[in-house]
Write a protein that binds this DNA or RNA. Structure first.
Lengths: 190, 190
DNA sequence: ACCTGAACACCGTTCAAGT
DNA sequence: ACCTGAACACCGTTCAAGT
């Protein structure tokens, strides 16, 4: 009953895991394509150790990303308390996009990975829950229609961080967001 | 004034280029992640030759894909002649999605690549033109609003081929398509 | 002018050997 | 129980040498 997070871990293992995540975070920010071997080297551990903790690149990416996702999803209630549902949703979506745009490789990992689909699901869980809250709040006020699938919304939102970099890209992202909201407002005709 | 496509090419160079594309097409269909070296080997040429013709993986992917894109974009007018604009658009979008879902790696190349952004533009050109035709035809009948940016629509359409495989994925893709069309119908409120 | 293919630095991944 | 780090097969890419 000594440490913090997971009960199973022992001694230096926990320290290593923490260091890997720490190094990976900064290293991935600098270059989304850093090799795992380089991360291991910078973390001053053997490659085998990295693989013991994270069996695949995606596993590592998702774990690194999870903290950021957690921070973002934790802010939902407060955002809903401080602004109208749709405005809060706009704000939140832009932040999600900004985050995913940077970690870039992550956006791919989340949708692409066939094998990591389960891991992905675990990671999408909180995001789905967050989107659900916005949708419910907006629907309760009659701002949007009922019965929108939050996963559908997330799928559409992924377009926001595939936009080209720069000013024009951000403008396009805003247009896309408004189009998505329009789709939330109006039920499909067919 | 002997051969067909590009005037610059000479002798075996053209044959090699054709063979690379041929092999790449089938090989990529079998495994989207085949290495360039393997493609070169299967095509019975040295890796250097492949690099001479296609300086990057993306360049090769885009060229391979271009034929399929061309076939699809060429069908637009006929489709518009045979069905109502929005139905034609639905049909066409599903085909585009099906194609991109298979070549998978391509969808990424089209959006992700920082360096190949220009190549990408050249490849998106026909697609953008195709979407423009559908939008114009639908707007002319009052089925959708005016002034929709076709590139925006393409961005949203990319969600269609990031859907999970299988029956459920196809259903979601259809839902997404209808949501996108709803966004074409109704102008954003804000 | 184009092609070949050996070679380079590096990748992900494994696994015996250590502690 | 966990870590190390050499080793393997392979990757993308280059470039001297050939024709």
């Amino acid at each position: 009953m000594a440490s913090e997070t997971n009960p199973g871990g022992r001694a230096d293992a926990q320290r290593n895991r923490a260091r890997i995540l720490d190094v990976a975070r900064t290293e991935l920010a600098a270059d989304p394509d850093v090799s795992l071997n380089v991360i291991a080297k910078r973390a001053a551990i053997g490659p085998g150790t990295l693989y013991r903790h994270f069996p695949s690149r995606e596993a590592l990416l998702l774990t690194v990303y999870q903290d950021d996702v957690a921070t973002l999803t934790a802010s939902v209630d407060q955002m809903l308390a401080e602004a109208e549902p749709l405005d809060a949703f706009r704000d939140w979506s832009r932040r999600l996009a900004a985050q995913s745009r940077i970690k870039h490789g992550l956006g791919e990992a989340l949708t692409t990975s066939a094998a990591a689909q389960e891991l992905t699901r675990a990671n999408w869980g909180p995001v789905t829950a967050a989107v659900s809250k916005f949708l419910a709040a907006a629907a309760a006020r009659g701002d949007i229609r009922d019965g929108v699938d939050p996963v559908d919304v997330i799928m559409l939102l992924t377009a926001l961080w595939r936009v080209p970099k720069g000013e024009a890209g951000l403008e396009q992202a805003d247009r896309l967001l408004e189009m998505i909201i329009a789709a939330l407002r109006h039920a499909p005709a067919r």
